[in-house]
């Protein structure tokens, strides 16, 4: 299988006044060409950091990055910033979580889209405008001509997300990172946007990394899923395999915390008790142990390795689901 992006043994630490904060720990992940991979986890699990680091967007004196990232046969981690930047837009692009904060509030929508076309593709001013209108139509924005002169604050959340998608796909990237693309949107708009992303992906033959906290989102929109917890991948499988044969208690907890339309009124939404462990000091045992309903003594003593259950299904648990274990009181 050809991979478009390959992450190997990635470690990311931040220098903070409280000490070294470990955001991503020994993560390896391959994105097959043309596929859609979901990265799922709570906020703080390291999924956003991972995706930004993979793309090379994390920089600054406070970031410590180790590991290897190969994109489209090129090793990004050994390239200069300028060389990496050359891959942006045309090779990789990203859609951000909050379209309000990710679009520049003081620049016109048209300028923000055309800017990529002009700088990255070297289009003339006229050609860039024509292409911008095409892109706006592509993301199903009505009256794209009028949209050119608008500012982000004048648009609804859904429209803004469409604009952001238009920016991301403007230079026909091979790989699209979508970081919580629907979190900030209404439920009805969410599905429209997800549908749009799926359509575009097929149409433009893009690979996609869909970062989300919502297992429901990955269910219908991805081929593979990687579940992250406390900076580590704790479970990874083809999407159908994962839902059919869930191994990690954490993945199960995530699934239970999804509200569904069929939920009985009055029934409380399940929440995952406890908090993520302190990222400045890695636990000796399983990171999820303090919150795990099935925790065993071994869990707090030894760190579980990532094991392969077959069918491309990896998990990191001493006592995976499906085995008989007494639930903690």
């Amino acid at each position: 299988m050809n991979t478009i992006l390959s992450i190997a043994a990635m470690n990311i630490k931040f220098v903070t006044p409280r000490g070294l904060l470990e955001a991503v720990h020994e993560v390896s992940l391959d994105i097959p060409v043309g596929s859609s991979v979901g990265i799922v986890g709570e906020s703080g699990s390291g999924k956003t950091v991972l995706s930004r680091a993979a793309m090379g967007l994390l920089s600054g004196s406070t970031v410590r990055r180790e590991g290897k990232v190969v994109f489209d046969g090129k090793e990004l981690t050994t390239m200069t910033r300028e060389q990496v930047r050359n891959e942006f837009g045309t090779g990789m692009a990203m859609i951000f979580q909050d379209p309000m904060t990710a679009l520049n509030p003081v620049r016109r929508v048209g300028t923000q889209i055309a800017e990529s076309l002009r700088i990255r593709l070297g289009m003339s001013k006229k050609a860039a405008v024509v292409r911008t209108i095409e892109l706006l139509s592509l993301v199903q924005i009505p009256d794209p001509q009028a949209m050119l002169r608008k500012f982000p604050y004048q648009l609804s959340g859904g429209m803004r997300q469409r604009v952001m998608i238009a920016i991301a796909i403007s230079c026909s990237p091979k790989l699209l990172f979508a970081d919580e693309p629907t979190t900030a949107l209404d439920v009805t708009v969410q599905s429209q946007i997800l549908q749009l992303l799926s359509d575009l992906r097929r149409e433009l033959k893009m690979s996609m990394v869909l970062v989300t906290h919502d297992l429901g989102v990955v269910a219908g929109n991805t081929d593979y899923v990687a579940v992250m917890y406390a900076g580590e991948i704790v479970e990874q499988a083809p999407t159908s395999e994962l839902f059919a044969n869930m191994k990690m208690p954490y993945t199960e907890a995530l699934l239970k915390s999804i509200p569904t339309i069929h939920m009985q009124s009055g029934k409380r939404l399940a929440v995952i008790e406890g908090r993520l462990p302190d990222p400045t000091s890695r636990l000796q045992g399983c990171s999820f142990a303090p919150r795990c309903p099935y925790v065993q003594p071994k869990c707090t003593a030894e760190h579980p390795p990532l094991v392969n259950a077959g069918n491309d299904h990896l998990y990191r648990c001493w006592f995976p689901l499906g085995q008989t274990i007494a639930r903690k009181q």
């Binding site: 930004r52 793309m55 967007l57 930047r85 050359n86 891959e87 942006f88 837009g89 045309t90 990789m92 692009a93 990203m94 951000f96 979580q97 909050d98 904060t101 990710a102 679009l103 520049n104 509030p105 800017e115 990529s116 700088i119 990255r120 952001m164 920016i167 991301a168 230079c171």
Partner: peptide, 10 residues
Amino acid sequence: DFVTMASSKG
């Protein structure tokens, strides 16, 4: 975010 966004545009 929009600064990160701008970087991601290359």
